[in-house]
Amino acid sequence: MNIALIGATGFIGSRLLTELTRRGHKVTAIVRNPEKVPAGAGISARKGDVFDRDGLSALLAGHDAVISAVHFSASDAATLLAAVKQSGVTRYLVVGGAGSLEVAPGVKLFDTKEFPAIYLDEARKGGAFLDLLKAETALDWTFLSPSALIQPGERTGKFRLGKDQLLVDANGNSAISAEDYAIALVDELEKPAHSRQRFTVGY
C-alpha cells in the first residue's frame, strides 16, 4: 500500500516507518525536518506542517491510508481531521495514548492519582481526540492505545489485544515495546478489524 505517515521520525513514528517498509509498503514520511528521515527503498520524505490544513491535505492526497504519529499537545485535532477529510483519503489510523483507557468501570487511567502529572496534558488531549473521532462519520478511523508503559524493546510479535480497558499481565504490569506496538498497528492497516474503534495492545 501507499501510506502517508505523519511524524515518521518520532519515537513511535520511526518504528512504524521501519515496520511498514519491512513489509513492502511505500511510505511518504511527512515531517518537519525531511533530512532526518532515513533513506530506504519505498521511502519518500516530505516537509509538512500539522497546523497547515491545506498544505497537509495536499501531501496526504492520493494515498491508500494516513497514519498519524504526532503528539496531541503538538498538534490540533480539528486541523488534522480536516486535512485528512479534505485530502480524500478515508482510512485514518491514529497512534493513541494509554491515559484514556479504563482501569475500572468509568475510571480512566489519567483519572487515577498514580498517573504522572507530567503526562496529564498530553493524555487528556488524546482522550479529546478520541472523542472527536467517535463522532466522525466521514472517515474509516482506528485509534490504537498502547499499554501504560511503552518503551524501546524487542520485536516479538507476541502480545494481546484489548478494547477500552488497560491490559495488565499476571504481575499487574502494563507494558508493550514500541516495536511490537508498530506490528499491531500495521497488522490493523493490512487486515482491518477495528473500524471506527479504539483498541489497545499489551503483554
Results as ranks from 00 to 15, higher is better:
127 G>P: 08
57 S>A: 03
137 T>Y: 06
67 I>F: 07
112 T>H: 11
113 K>I: 11
77 A>L: 13
48 G>T: 00
136 E>Y: 06
115 F>A: 08
113 K>N: 11
106 G>T: 12
128 A>L: 11
58 A>D: 00
84 V>R: 08
119 Y>W: 14
89 V>F: 00
90 T>N: 11
125 K>I: 04
81 L>V: 14
118 I>C: 10
57 S>R: 01
71 H>W: 13
83 A>G: 14
118 I>T: 13
49 D>N: 05
129 F>C: 08
102 E>C: 07
30 I>C: 03
61 A>S: 03
37 V>C: 03
64 D>K: 03
57 S>Q: 00
44 S>I: 05
103 V>A: 04
99 G>N: 04
25 H>V: 07
115 F>V: 08
47 K>G: 04
72 F>C: 08
92 Y>R: 05
121 D>C: 10
102 E>D: 09
130 L>P: 02
110 F>H: 15
32 R>G: 05
97 G>S: 03
128 A>H: 10
54 D>V: 03
134 K>R: 15
110 F>E: 06
112 T>F: 11
50 V>M: 02
90 T>K: 14
36 K>H: 13
72 F>P: 00
106 G>K: 09
70 V>A: 10
33 N>S: 14
63 H>G: 06
60 L>A: 00
56 L>V: 03
89 V>Y: 01
104 A>T: 05
135 A>Q: 15
42 G>K: 01
95 V>N: 03
115 F>I: 09
76 D>Q: 15
71 H>D: 11
133 L>Q: 02
48 G>I: 01
96 G>A: 03
38 P>N: 02
40 G>W: 05
67 I>E: 02
50 V>Q: 01
32 R>N: 06
88 G>H: 08
98 A>N: 07
97 G>V: 02
46 R>P: 04
121 D>V: 14
121 D>W: 05
84 V>W: 05
64 D>S: 07
27 V>T: 10
132 L>M: 13
53 R>E: 15
54 D>F: 03
43 I>Y: 02
33 N>L: 10
40 G>Q: 03
66 V>Y: 02
47 K>P: 02
65 A>F: 01
128 A>N: 10
93 L>A: 11
128 A>P: 07
44 S>R: 07
91 R>V: 11
26 K>I: 10
122 E>D: 14
51 F>A: 12
63 H>Q: 15
76 D>M: 13
72 F>V: 07
109 L>Y: 06
135 A>Y: 10
56 L>A: 00
58 A>K: 00
109 L>E: 05
112 T>A: 11
56 L>K: 01
74 A>V: 09
99 G>F: 02
73 S>M: 12
30 I>K: 01
131 D>Y: 07
112 T>R: 12
107 V>S: 08
49 D>K: 00
76 D>F: 13
